[in-house]
Design a protein around this nucleic acid. Structure first.
Lengths: 347, 347
DNA sequence: GTTGGCACTCGCCACAAGAGAGTGCCAATC
DNA sequence: GATTGGCACTCTCTTGTGGCGAGTGCCAAC
């Protein structure tokens, strides 16, 4: 019926597909008997065993021990998602249902939160969404309001509608009109300028003359920094971590703890997410591919999301290596699009 | 040597104390032999057994099964913390080290975060801190900034330096000066008024006449609501959840998942924390006392924290019932004081 | 190339036996 | 009367054993 192509036969590929499908569903090693039934090829277990032997030699599957069935290896999954998988797009009704989550009139922060919950809710895995970068944010205005003596509330607004605030202490007590003056001065001076430019200008100016508004300028710099910083050392929002406790392969307290610690630490995860900004589309890390030991038994499916044609962040899901990739991928993809669209109107 | 007082002898109390101490340290049921050695009373195991029998009858300890040692019951812990425990205050150096965490020049949000991390870090349990209420927050000013057409960024500042922002859509396109006008009008009108008052005034006014600034007013109401809301349906910050995975008594995935879900849901935890606002000082829920099944094997040690003599929030730790109460209590207490002090300067 | 047969390998489970820890009770002791 | 040593008893935990079931690899036959 089917004959071998290049170095892995059509039939073997089909078997691999069926095996992975079955294993993802059941979580148990798949034996030749089962596969024979499942494959629908009307072959005897013995034949299947030969094929499985080939697949094992290729490194796509392995036997946990002599007399268990086979489970996919990382390479197996890799081959599966790279060449065997044809992702069918989500049906329109699901997308429509998802879109409702992204009503307008919500701050970016809210939308990010919804996206991660949506991801985790639909996939039953952990959802993660990075905060969007503001690479092109421009200075819009700054406001200084007196609190108690020597304490001032500073508010910075960027062109993208991002609002930052922090409390600063001044050298001496400033009255409201002084502060007003400072606000106006800085706002006028920097209106519409790039935040990075604002920062360097301020720094230069401070070197030059120790103006009376020294403290204010330091603050302005700090705040500009804060905004800039937030775009570099990004942050992310996560939801549904507890979903991961359902999976036996992660049901080891040790692993679970390391995993959750990694989620809280954020560093490693961020590093991985960062790598996904570049690739233009769905990106997948399977098992050890991530390079982080804590994620050895996990996979990550990510997609960058764009606003106005520019990638501003990444979202995705984290789950056990044994995950239904063909189901997860379109969901991640769709969420990225929807989130991008929802954010678009905010600028 | 010692003779019985009322209904539980001095000696029995001492035994209970030693037993709990030992059990908290080792996590294993404590037998008569061990207790005899540990108690330092120079009594034989047989005598100890008699005393333990009494304690068991009183419901303070129980045997997990015949031929194991004894473990404290909830009542046992209760009696222990209520009458046996004398909390020694933290030594000054520790307090000083903690105080360094609470530098000034940080927003309340930051301080709250630090507090919860401090709690979890020192106790190796989960730390939790509610966001402070703003019961007496006054309207300070509101600002409207145009974003894209029909989209306006609204910023509300309260007397306590809290900044809220949200995006609203308007019926028609408003230009900058119109918005400026609206800002000024509302800011002047409500400056220094109670947020609740602002809200009701706005509502009344809206009924009366459909002013041109209708949409702005709706927003102002929404935002006032948001601030008010934030104080009722409080929220909290948590840290160190993963610490709880270390304890065998919680090392059941099922329990762990329920627990973490409860942390994310927040409702139950908030309800408990709420109950601690009133009692003036350390409050402790031991095991089932919380009334929530997910927390059956957990205890919670809380303390309200005050700003200017008024309780504005609660903080505490959550850990297994088997926790070193005498160590945890002073830490929670100190943290509450320090946080209160740190927040004080912010108003 | 495909198939049935067969010996073999493991993991898993139930069961039994033994060790260890701790108890309760009782009679002897201080 | 409180304290103690002794003793039988109970219960858990560990270890070892044997059987069962699932699945494999190989081989000879088709």
């Amino acid at each position: 019926m089917k004959q071998p192509t290049s170095d892995i036969s059509e039939r073997a590929q089909h078997m691999l597909r069926v095996l992975i499908d079955r294993y993802v569903r059941e979580g148990q090693p798949v034996g030749s008997r089962t596969l024979a039934r499942e494959a629908g090829l009307d072959l005897s277990p013995a034949t299947i065993r030969n094929v499985m032997s080939d697949l094992e030699e290729l490194g796509f599957i392995r036997a946990p021990h002599t007399s268990a069935g086979r489970v996919p290896t990382v390479q197996g999954y890799r081959f599966f998602v790279d060449t065997l998988l044809k992702v069918q797009p989500l049906d329109i009704s699901s997308v429509e249902r998802m879109r409702l989550e992204f009503e307008p009139e919500r701050t970016p922060k809210d939308l990010i939160g919804s996206a991660s919950e949506l991801l985790s809710g639909i996939t039953h895995l952990a959802g993660v969404v990075t905060l969007p970068k503001h690479e092109h944010a421009l200075f819009r205005r700054v406001e200084f309001l007196p609190l108690s003596e020597k304490r001032v509330l500073a508010i910075l607004v960027t062109s993208e509608g991002e609002v930052q605030n922090r409390i600063i202490t001044t050298d001496r007590q400033c009255n409201a009109s002084e502060l007003q003056q400072a606000s106006n001065y800085l706002s006028q001076l920097f209106q519409g300028k790039d935040l990075a430019a604002v920062r360097s200008t301020l720094l230069a100016e401070m070197q030059e003359e120790r103006s009376t508004m020294n403290r204010m300028m330091v603050t302005a710099i700090q705040m500009a920094d804060q905004v800039l910083e937030e775009q570099q050392s990004e942050d992310y929002v996560m939801a549904g971590q507890t979903n991961l406790m359902e999976f036996q392969e992660l049901c080891d307290i040790e692993k679970l703890r390391n995993l959750f610690d990694a989620f809280n630490q954020k560093r490693e995860i961020l590093h991985l997410l960062d790598q996904c900004v570049h690739g233009d589309g769905i990106q997948i890390f399977i098992g050890e591919e991530s390079g982080y030991q804590t994620l050895d038994e996990c996979s990550m499916v990510t997609a960058p999301y764009q606003v106005d044609g520019e990638v501003v962040g990444v979202l995705g899901v984290i789950g056990p290596t044994r995950m239904a990739y063909e189901r997860v991928i379109p969901i991640v993809d769709a969420t990225a699009r929807l989130l991008g669209a929802a954010l678009k109107h905010k600028d």
